[in-house]
Write a protein that binds this DNA or RNA. Structure first.
Lengths: 248, 248
DNA sequence: GTCAGGCGTTCGCATACGCGAACGCAATTC
DNA sequence: GAATTGCGTTCGCGTATGCGAACGCCTGAC
């Protein structure tokens, strides 16, 4: 069905282009007749899903779209259950904690509780990062066979920082290590200066969700790392219990 | 344009019905032919905007919708600027702080930073509450004339708790007090046991955004309240400066 | 001052889409 | 076990919708 597909396509284009888009910009991106776009945008504006700056006729995502997107988080029982557990974990560690889900070759952040130190970060909720560049993603990939991972990942792995592992064989070594230890880690592979530990939530085969804790390198030491990994593991296990007993 | 309207209508219905909906449930809610819904849902599923549980054929909002909704927050310069300021405020007070925007007769929560005490709360982002039941909403209504407020509010005000002010005249008294003091407050009018203070972000006429700080009644005392109100006012003023100087 | 290029907007025609009715399948009911 | 009810699914017809071309407007170039 073309019209629904296109509606969504327009919304996604607007959401990608941060600040907003003009009609012509959209038409170039989507290769859709201007007239069709025009009518479509007008109806989306009329129901508050798109907002338009009348001076510049620039379109951006509207307030009404916000509700629907976040309903995904509300409707997901695992996310609901993980909220309080992760808040607790953040308070115990005073480090930033996340819950993320694998979607194709990316991880999507579903929960984010920031440490009190790290005030600059804007919440990562709904943001995507390539799975191979995050601890959250690596532990989820590590739960999968070599062939499954190959099918998931793109042929060329994006290098977000100098430290990002983009070599498939090297990645495999990391994943093997993660399988042994039961957790994955990563240092500056998506954000320079930040180290991150992650544990997969069991219950599904293979796991689709993982919890993580990230901190600046300056706060890292063996004792703190052990505490963090212990906290993450216990948290993931509790969630895994819930997944199994409730059939999520 | 019917198809776009209906697409959005389906998404909103799914987002309202928390856990998900069957085809027939949707058809009863929306009064739309089953066959049309069926086709529409299939395309939405194929692009990941709706997920379907094949055992029960229950439809729910999909992961792809999440991105688009939260793009509203990313694209809004005020929200971006308020993030770090509110995080700072939360750390100073160790109380839960919010940024909200007036939309019709509701306020929509755009930022939420929880205190370390209050672990149970799930994030209020994107949630709506009737403006008259919140400090955030009262201060925004107080910036408007009697007639404007009348046009905005429904004829019967919803009573969420025993303490909710639902009498128009009584509400007007509260708003007059808020105008004098420069902030609004509310005790248990949307959540029993919770007290909340709010200040409007200046720069627009009338203001559309406000910042708030809520805490359990047990932690309230004059000194703490004064500190909170001072922090909120300073935060709102800083944001107002930004709005004015950048023309947001 | 004129022209060109880019923009948002309008309009009539061909087409893809929404509709209702009918179907097949389970799970209940008696 | 026959009948009923509720569900998801299919299909052909009439119509709402998407399309390209043309329009009017502005801005900047020369």
């Amino acid at each position: 069905m073309k019209s629904a597909y296109r509606t969504v396509e327009v919304l996604e284009a607007l959401s990608r282009s941060g600040g907003g888009c003009s009609l012509s910009e959209l038409q170039r991106q989507l290769r859709v007749p201007k007239s069709s776009l025009h009518e479509l945008l007008q109806t989306l504006v009329s129901i508050g899903w798109v907002e338009v700056d009348l001076r510049t006729t620039t379109y951006r995502i509207g307030l009404r779209a916000l509700r629907v997107g976040t309903a995904y988080l509300d409707s997901d029982p695992l996310v609901r259950a993980a909220g309080p557990l992760l808040a607790q974990l953040r308070n115990e560690m005073d480090e930033t904690v996340h819950l993320a889900r694998l979607d194709g070759s990316d991880v999507v952040y579903l929960i984010s509780h920031e440490s009190s130190h790290h005030v600059r970060v804007i919440s990562r909720i709904a943001r995507r990062l390539p799975a191979h560049s995050t601890a959250l993603g690596k532990i989820l990939l590590a739960m999968r066979s070599y062939d499954e991972v190959t099918a998931l990942l793109p042929s060329r792995l994006e290098k977000l920082t100098p430290a990002t592992v983009v070599d498939r064989a090297e990645l495999e070594v990391e994943m093997e290590k993660a399988r042994e230890l039961g957790y994955s880690s990563e240092t500056g592979q998506n954000t320079p200066g930040l180290v991150c530990f992650a544990v997969a939530v069991p219950g599904h085969h293979p796991s689709t969700d993982s919890v993580s804790c990230s901190m600046p390198l300056t706060r890292l030491n063996d004792e703190h790392a052990a505490r963090v990994i212990g906290g993450l593991t216990s948290c993931a296990d509790q969630l895994g219990q819930l997944v199994r007993s409730n059939g999520w």
